[in-house]
């Protein structure tokens, strides 16, 4: 009989993947059911985004461009709620446009969770809906807003919306906020490089390493990464929400990943030594 088969390292190496899945499930579930209250330090990138938005004078115009599929919306929603609350609290006008088909419906649902502080649709904010073509549509919008957009999400001609009267091109915006789960380069090319409009990114956490070169080069003035960034932004505007309650799960999930990657290597080395 092959004795190596009974060794703990052999058994662990052939560990049923479902056990790993179960461990992850538990690590994520416990803090959601019973928040652990782990500390949440504010990162520099989120602070920079907050400080830039906070420095905008009342009456400024901000473009909130969205490109986040329905699957990733929960990751950016806490940050989106926080930034919209921040913008409304400072009486900044918000124009929302979507580069994906799902986003206009998603943002409508998110807006129901935002305290609009008496702000009026069409006067203080507008949802322009979805425009197909990605970078082609971005370029067309940046060049001539009224050339691309004829009606808002509800079918109202944009001439009838007071907020759109003074917005003709990208140059009329004080800031672009890109809520994204995809590459930021097209928006940088069409808004930052072409018109010099400052940009803040609200992105899913997976994109952070890719966006770092743009942040360090000053092409984006701040970055709010995923749920963690959303939770940080909630703390900065002093309105803790759904982001803050899920960061514990994030912490535990990452710790489990670290443990698993170390454990996997320990077992792999034990087997190698055993085979010798």
């Amino acid at each position: 009989m092959d004795e190596t088969k009974n060794k703990p390292s052999e058994k662990m190496a052939k560990l049923d993947a479902r056990i790993i899945y179960l461990a992850m499930f538990i690590a994520l579930l416990i803090p959601i059911l019973r928040p652990l209250g782990l500390p949440l330090p504010i990162s520099d990138m989120t602070r920079k985004a907050y400080e830039y938005v906070d420095s905008l004078p009342s009456g400024s115009k901000v473009l909130l461009a969205l490109h986040v599929s329905v699957g990733l919306w929960p990751e950016v929603e806490p940050g989106t709620i926080a930034i919209l609350s921040h913008l409304f609290s400072k009486s900044i006008k918000v124009v929302i446009i979507s580069w994906g088909a799902d986003e206009p419906v998603l943002v409508e649902s998110t807006l129901t969770k935002v305290d609009k502080m008496g702000k009026q649709y069409g006067v203080d904010w507008v949802n322009l809906g979805y425009y197909a073509g990605m970078e082609t549509a971005m370029a067309a919008f940046a060049k001539d807003v009224h050339g691309l957009v004829k009606r808002d999400f509800y079918g109202t001609p944009i001439e009838n919306l007071p907020i759109m009267k003074d917005i003709k091109s990208a140059k009329d915006f004080n800031l672009v906020i890109y809520d994204t789960a995809s590459d930021i380069a097209p928006m940088i090319r069409q808004f930052v490089a072409a018109y010099g409009i400052p940009m803040v990114a609200f992105c899913t956490i997976g994109w952070v390493p890719s966006f770092m070169p743009y942040l360090t080069a000053g092409q984006i003035v701040g970055m709010v990464p995923g749920i963690r960034g959303g939770a940080e932004y909630e703390l900065l505007i002093k309105r803790p929400g759904s982001g803050a309650t899920t960061t514990d799960a994030l912490s535990l999930g990452f710790i489990l990943l670290i443990v698993l990657s170390i454990l996997g290597n320990v077992i792999w080395y034990s087997r190698k030594i055993g085979m010798r």
Binding site: L28, V70, G71, W73, D102
Partner: peptide
């Protein structure tokens, strides 16, 4: 909008098995 995030949620499990 519930199935979409669920599919993304699966990634946590794949991430765990890939890390191991």
């Amino acid at each position: 909008s519930t199935v979409g995030p669920t599919m993304w949620g699966l990634l946590a499990f794949y991430l765990a098995s890939a890390s191991f």
